[in-house]
Amino acid sequence: MSLLSVRDLTVKFAMRDQTVTALNGISFDLAKGERLGIVGESGAGKSITGFSLMNLLSRPGYIDTGKILFEGEDVVQMNDKRLRNLRGNRMAMIFQDPMVTLNPVLTIGQQMIETLMAHRKLSHEEARQIAIVKLREVYIPSPEERLEQYPHELSGGMRQRIIIAIALLLDPQLIIADEPTTALDVTIQADIMELMLELCQSNQVGLILITHDLGVVSQMTERTLVMYAGRIIESGRTREIINDPQHPYTQGLINALPQQTVPGQRLKQIPGNMPGLASIPAGCAFNPRCKYATDLCRSRVPEAVHYGGVEVACHEVQRLNSDEDRQEARA
């Protein structure tokens, strides 16, 4: 049985004048200890997916339909008490910006210890000892002193390490990390990623890594979901997706990667922008930006099909990935 099994998840936002759909029938699975990347342009619904898994959407967002089976239990149906037991304990989250994630008026120690004591019957001192051990695991020097410090006394990198330590405090089955390094200095981004990879592997923790960065995804994850306008348009093993993407959108993303370009050549971007939630086009949402779009693309939403080792939602996948077209697409 998989650790996590998301089925037909649909998330909506009830805006004042209309209700928009942010996630439209998302389905995917995650095995125990598996690392999954979620990629896509800004606004694709990556963060919404992450928050939904913890049933942590805030108004006006809500889960409309679907199931999120985590260790066999549906997160969507959980009551508040079950949800509190889930969050931070069985499933932990690492937020994007460590500068605003920690509470400025509570010490690191308070924020770590409260997390432990929320889920386990521990004395304050026992909790403190666990916190120190976890801080060591993320290579924080003199952890005892850190516990007494306030967040503003620490650098961004240090804070993100602490947040990783907090995520590991209760030995969760799954960690959701939403762009955990984008707010950090480039020089330490790789260190943080390496640390997360190491810890996930050694603790057998599942990871859902949300990112814009396909390079990071290929380094960190075994499987990848590519999202566009609230849907998964391609999914499969990360290696296949990076080396042999089938969906025109994924191909565009890969082509835009710096190493695919001859030095000095301009970065290729996919022309156009992702549509806003209120104006998602009929049919395949990508059709206005797709050079292969047909009438069918403009009227019917493509279903995901197996193709070339991945699952891909594109009407034209067979035609355009026949060999000669593929050469053209790559050009």
Binding site: L83, R84, R87, N89, F95, N103, A118
Partner: peptide, 9 residues
Amino acid sequence: KYAKAKGIN
């Protein structure tokens, strides 16, 4: 939001 994600009462 983060405190909620940690399961705090």
